[in-house]
Structures are given as structure tokens and as C-alpha cells.
Amino acid sequence: MIANFIEGLTKYEFLQNALFTSVVIGIVSGVIGCFIILRGMSLMGDAISHAVLPGVAVSYIVGVNYFIGATVFGLFAALIIGLVTQHSKLKSDTAIGIVFSSFFAAGIIAISFAKSSTDLYHILFGNVLAVTQSDMIITVVIAIIVVLFVIVFYKELLVSSFDPVMSQAYGLRTQVIHYALMLLLTLVAVSALQTVGTILVVAMLITPAATAYLLSNRLSVMILIASTIGVVSSVVGLFLSYSYNLASGAAIVLTTTVFFILAFLFSPKQNLLIKRRKAIK
């Protein structure tokens, strides 16, 4: 089976592209995902990944690369969510729910105008085997931007995620950091759309990061673990998808889930089994 996969890799360019793209997306979604879950923005990740849908449709209609339209709409959604939250008595999860479902609904209708239903299927569920050369290049560029940003502003990201009040007190522009992260989150969500599709992007962001969270007590270590899990899951998922003809996105996401379950059961932080054993005694 594995030999078959490796043979396929040497033979087919589409499989090489798919593997490379998946690996890169595994890395960046792990990195950004850590900040998303630590800042309590998981729902925001879900929202943005859904809200890019109309952007994809508009890009098809206008005839530009879908990265552009998707990014514009993702950011637009983040802004509207911010506005609704600030200017109403609603809690932010409610504002997020309203905005992203509206965007998503608009996207479904717009897609039906733009292209056939098979395309909708690929956008919703991902089709990593159809990644083009230009998509690959954009994905790599996004990955470089994200990783550089996190390295350069690690200090600021750490302090504003852990203690926003202290950050504000000493004059850090926390709003700027928030929207910069939203921008990166949007870029990552758009690129992850290729491997797992809009509906499952949030899993790539949250599950590896959550698993790493259970296994580490330093942010830098957590980021490394999350990226590693992202990469391994992408490779294993792609392998399963190729070998058993499964949907690639679903296979990748379920692989991350397996990691999460293992960490949940055995992590020292969680201590679930040890606690249980003590309880039985």
C-alpha cells in the first residue's frame, strides 16, 4: 500500500503537488491555530473560513484567482463581526453566527450562478488532488508570510494573547495585532480550503493546536507540536485518501482527530487515565 503511494508520488505530478501543498498547509494552520485557540477565537476561525465562500464565487465570475476574492470577503466578514460586536448588546459569538451564516448562504447562491455544482463540492470539501502550480506558489508565499510574522512579532503575540490588559497598559496596539491575525487567519483559511474545503478548515486550525495545547506548557513548544501534527496528519490523510479513494479533506481531518484523542487520553496535563485509575482505587 505504502509502496503504491510512493510509486504514485514518483509518477504523478498532481500527487506531488498535493503532498507538498498539504504539508505546507499543515504547518501554517498549526502555527496560526495555536493563537486562535489561545485567544478564544475558534468560532472566529470557523466563521472566516465559511465567509470566504462568496469571495470564491465572485472570483470565478470576474475571472481572477480565487485567493483574491476569498481573502477580501474573509476580511470583510472579520470587520463586520467586529462592528456588530462593538455596536450592539449582542455577545460576539452571536454576531459571528449571524455574519458567517449569511456570508455562507450568499456564497452558495453565488456559486450556483458562477459554476457547476461539482465546483461547489470541491470548495466545500476540498480537492487537494486538483491543486494547480499557481495555487501551490500562493500557498507557499502565504506560509512564508505567516511564519515570518509569527517569528518577528512572537513577543507581541505572546503577551497580547496571554495578558491583553498588560499589553494595552504598556501601550501595545492590541487592535492592530488582532486585525493582523485576522488577515493571516483569512489567508490560511483560504489556502487550507484546497486540502480540506471551507467546511473543515476550522478542524485544521483547531484540532492540531488543541492537541498541542494538551501536550505542552510553553507557547513555542505548542506551536512546534501543532505544526508537526498538522504535517503528519496531512501526509497520512493524503495517503489514506489516495489508497482507499476517500475524500482527502475528511481523511486529513480524521487523522488529526486520532491525534487529539490520543493526547486527550494520555497527556500529562489532562491526566485522564491516571485520574480514572485513582478514582477506581
Binding site: 496571554f162 507557547l219 505548542m222
Partner: peptide, 27 residues
């Protein structure tokens, strides 16, 4: 601002955040 240290109430801090004591002080 940089010359003012603000020690907020403890209950506003996320105690499960992956950060050690020395790193907290480093902030």
C-alpha cells in the same frame, strides 16, 4: 506608559495558558 507597571486582578488571567513562571516574568 512603559514606565508604569499594572498588576491586574489575578482572576482575569488565563491560568491554563502554556507559559512558565520565568517566561511570565520575562513579559
Amino acid at each position: 506608559r512603559k514606565n508604569i507597571a499594572y498588576v491586574e486582578q489575578r482572576n482575569t488571567i488565563d491560568l491554563t495558558f502554556p507559559i512558565k513562571v520565568s517566561e511570565t516574568v520575562l513579559l
